[in-house]
């Protein structure tokens, strides 16, 4: 049992990979390095897919690129509504990033979403985007006035929501990934053969992609509410 705790702790801890020797040393954690790897893969694929686009006589590569982009866009645009459509590219990027980050554990990397820094960053960016969308759409005055809706007495709750929303987004993603990771580790301890594969289908792939979808879904729901 002590062995389990030890290895679990080791897996859960995000180690510092290296330290940049300026300002007294900046620690770069593993999640950031894995994020770089994900970024490199995504940008490489995007570069390969997005090259040499033509209007007619399209190649197979372009057909794939168009299908992917159109599917992702329609997926997100259905959730944000017509007013929030200009935020679609960011939401699609986040969707793909979280999706890859959640299932990258299968390839032997440590999921970046298992680090609270990453999920917190995602949640903070989401809430900034939501509030920015509200201000951009209605102007500062109306945006401030929205806090007193529907009645003035709920204003504290509305203000509180600005902080609870990113917290809930952050913790949901983090907890889900962490929880499924811990459960997978426990299953691997008990039955090392076959069973982990079956469960990893659910916990790693299905749950990981679902959580990515839920994250983007909630963010676009907030955006829709803000621009309404």
């Amino acid at each position: 049992m002590g062995n389990l705790t030890e290895s679990l702790m080791e897996e859960l801890n995000c180690e510092t990979v290296f330290t940049i020797p300026i300002f007294g040393g900046i620690d770069i954690s593993e999640s950031v390095v894995v994020t770089w790897i994900i970024m490199a893969v995504m940008v490489l694929i995007a570069f390969i897919l997005g090259r040499n686009l033509r209007i007619d006589h399209i190649s197979k590569r372009q057909a794939i690129a168009e299908t992917i982009v159109t599917k992702l866009y329609s997926m997100v645009e259905g959730m944000t509504g017509p007013e929030g459509m200009k935020y679609t590219p960011y939401l699609v990027t986040v969707l793909v990033y979280i999706g890859i980050a959640n299932i990258i554990g299968l390839f032997g990397f440590k999921s970046p979403t298992k680090d609270l820094n990453v999920t917190a960053a995602l949640a903070i960016m989401s809430i900034i985007l939501v509030e920015f969308a509200g201000i951009y759409q209605h102007g500062v005055k109306k945006w401030l006035h929205k806090f007193t809706e529907p009645i003035a007495i709920v204003t504290p709750i509305n203000i509180l929501e600005v902080f609870t929303r990113p917290l809930s987004l952050c913790m949901r993603l983090f907890g889900n990934v962490l929880g499924s990771f811990v459960i997978m580790k426990l299953i691997e301890m008990v039955v090392p053969i076959f069973l982990p594969t079956v469960f990893s289908l659910y916990f790693d792939i299905f749950d990981g992609l679902l959580q990515a979808y839920v994250f983007v879904f909630l963010t676009s729901l907030y955006i829709k509410e803000a621009v309404d």
Binding site: R172, G175, G179
Partner: peptide
Amino acid sequence: AEATAIYGFV
């Protein structure tokens, strides 16, 4: 809905 359970777990 699972989020609640996840919060408890966290």
